[in-house]
Structures are given as structure tokens and as C-alpha cells.
Design a protein around this nucleic acid. Structure first.
Length: 303
RNA sequence: GGUACCAUAGCUCAGUUGGUAGAGCAAUGGACUGAAAAUCCAUGUGUCCCUGGUUCGAUUCCAGGUGGUACCA
């Protein structure tokens, strides 16, 4: 019997959670989350983790399983999710993958290249050099270490340039040599469901959701994390804006406005990423029956 | 009802001594291989309220209309 990974993806706020739970119930299976922020147990309100009843209705994996103090990235996501799946497939024929973190989804579905995790000290050193010497110095360094990647990379994107330099220094090899540009073969079938709705409707939902988060106490949740604001895991919409407010840089009203705007922009970036993935079959979140029908078709047709 | 002022991008407004217009915010498109809710790149989207008049030419000047704001009744 072949195994299937049903991927439910879509922009933030589109309504993935509700339909996912119903689909999971229909297939009598569980949900693995591919959300780069809901994994952290210190964040709930601002990351819109499913409600308690929803988490009880269907078992969820990779929600609140890690701490903001842990290192977690697409690599860990790929490894840990694949391990989980191999266990789940002993019992189940279908498993749901639900989330909007584009790179995590791709890491699970297509795999990413094997590049060693950067030593924290080296990362720190490299970043300090960037701060001190500037982007141009890092670009020159990359040109030395890996002229091939230097010609491919978006040179204005400091994160990309710095990361490439880190990898070269860490491995003693050119970063471009480690990039295989290949897709890993998975031993399960992948069915990708994209959820989307009218842009204006999506934006209204996002705006409203932010107001609800504020009513539910997002400010308090963020306040407790203010001391960790330098953490990458807290460079997150809903928190970073409130940190600016706590620091006295903007007023609360402005912070809320920025949370809404940045959520909208995030949704736009997600759609931009998903749009080029031809494997995705798109639906409106209300089309639950159509989605289930489509999935069943795909499972039986290609079985 | 009268008087004054205003009407330009999704919003707030600038501007054109008459040659069809531009800022901020918002927005849109794109990139993406271990920090990805991150990071980076690109883009001005317009019956200049309507109808006439003057003019070679009106968003600009004039008249009327409509809508808004303020004050007086």
C-alpha cells in the first residue's frame, strides 16, 4: 500500500486550520505542522496556533515542540518530519502536512542539500565582521572563497552573502559545490492543496485576526519575551513590532498597524512563492468536499 | 436658506503663472537551498467631482450644478 503526504498550504490567515482538521478526521489521521513559528512553545497568540479543542480533536505534531532557545531550521524540520512520517506510515496510509512556511514545506517535499550547521561562534564572528566592515567587504570575501556563487547570489542581500561565506569557512569548500540543485526522492506520494481567497477578503481576515490577538493578550505574551528580542525566532510578525513599542520607539496604535501590514506582506510573499509551484491544486477554504474528493481521486488513481 | 472655503492616486495632501500631474503612507509584481513570519529587488496605479463658457489648448480661469466642511440664520 502506498503512502501519501497530503500538504495543505496557503497564506497566513486564509483558514488552513479548520479545513485541515476536518480533512484529518475524514482520513482518520494526524497533522504534522510545517510552521516555522508555531513550533516554539513560548509563542501562541501571535502565531495563531490552533485552539485547545482543535489540538485535542486531531493529534498535531511540531506545534509547541521546541523552544525559542533551541536551534531549529529547515534542515531540522526536514530531518525530524521525515523521521516522524516513517513512524506514522507504519499505522497510517495518509498524513497531513499543514502550514505556510514555504521553505519548510519544500525541505520536506523536495529536500535540501546537506550542508553542515554553522558553528554558533563562527556565525557570530562572521556577523560581527559584517557589521564592522560592511556588506562590500563580505562580497569581496565571497568572491575570493566562491567566485561561482558570487556570480549567482543576490549581492545586495546581506543574509545570503554572509551565509555563503559562513559555509565556505565552515566546510573549507565552496558553497556552490555543496549545492546540488537536485530533488530528493521520497518514498511517499505528495498531494499539494493550496488554499486561497480574494485578496481583499484575505486582508480583512488578517486585519481582524490581529485585533483579536490583541484582545486575547498578545501584548502580555510579547512583553514576557521582550528580553529575548534579539533571538531570530522572535524576529516574527506580531512580536517584533510590539518590541519596538516596548522600547518606546513607536506607540501601540502604530505597532498594531504594523503587525497588520507586515502580516499582509508576508501573505503576499507566501503567494509569490507558492504561485510558481505547478504541483499545487488550488481551492477556496470553503470547498472542503471538493478538496477531499480531489485527494481521494489522486490517491486511488495513482495507487 | 445665506456666506465662505474645499473637491487631484486606495488614504492624507502637494502642484500645474493654462500645454493632461507627484510626495508620504497604503498597494502590486518578483527572487529565495540550514536565521525563511527572515532577507532582498523592482513598480505610480489617476474621467485632476460634473456640465457648459473663454481659449489653438482647461485639471488649472469663469459660470452653473453636485457633494463636503465651517460660520451665520
Amino acid at each position: 500500500m502506498s503512502k501519501t503526504l497530503i500538504v495543505i498550504l496557503g497564506p497566513t490567515g486564509v483558514g488552513k486550520t479548520d479545513i485541515s482538521i476536518n480533512i484529518a478526521k475524514h482520513f482518520n489521521t494526524v497533522i504534522s505542522s510545517s510552521d516555522s513559528r508555531q513550533v516554539y512553545r513560548e509563542m501562541s497568540i501571535g502565531t495563531a496556533v490552533p485552539e485547545k479543542e482543535q489540538l485535542e480533536a486531531v493529534q498535531h505534531h511540531f506545534i509547541h515542540t521546541h523552544s525559542i532557545h533551541d536551534y531549529f531550521s529547515s534542515w531540522e524540520c526536514e530531518q525530524q518530519t521525515l523521521e516522524l512520517l516513517s513512524n506514522l506510515y507504519k499505522e497510517k496510509d495518509e498524513v497531513l502536512l499543514v502550514g505556510g512556511s514555504m521553505m519548510y514545506i519544500d525541505a520536506i517535499c523536495n529536500g535540501i542539500d546537506e550542508i553542515p550547521t554553522i558553528d554558533p561562534e563562527l556565525r557570530d564572528q562572521t556577523f560581527k565582521r559584517y557589521e564592522k566592515e560592511g556588506l562590500e567587504a563580505m562580497q569581496m570575501e565571497l568572491k575570493q572563497l566562491d567566485p561561482v556563487f558570487y556570480n549567482q547570489v543576490d549581492l545586495k542581500n546581506a543574509k545570503r552573502v554572509i551565509h555563503a561565506v559562513e559555509v565556505c569557512l565552515m566546510t573549507g569548500k565552496a558553497y556552490s559545490e555543496l549545492r546540488t540543485n537536485s530533488r530528493k526522492k521520497r518514498d511517499f506520494k505528495i498531494v499539494k492543496i493550496g488554499l486561497n481567497r480574494d485578496r481583499s477578503e484575505l486582508y480583512e481576515r488578517i486585519n481582524h485576526r490581529v485585533d483579536v490577538m490583541m484582545e486575547e493578550g498578545l501584548e502580555k505574551e510579547a512583553k514576557a519575551l521582550f528580553k529575548y528580542r534579539e533571538y531570530n525566532s522572535l524576529n516574527t510578525v506580531g512580536y517584533k513590532e510590539l518590541f519596538e513599542y516596548f522600547a518606546g520607539e513607536i506607540d501601540l496604535e502604530k505597532a498594531v498597524e504594523l503587525i497588520k501590514r507586515n502580516s499582509r506582506r508576508y501573505a503576499k510573499r507566501q503567494l509569490s512563492w507558492f504561485r510558481r509551484d505547478a504541483e499545487i491544486e488550488w481551492f477556496h477554504p470553503d470547498q472542503e468536499e471538493e478538496v477531499i474528493h480531489y485527494i481521494e481521486n489522486r490517491i486511488t488513481k495513482e495507487a
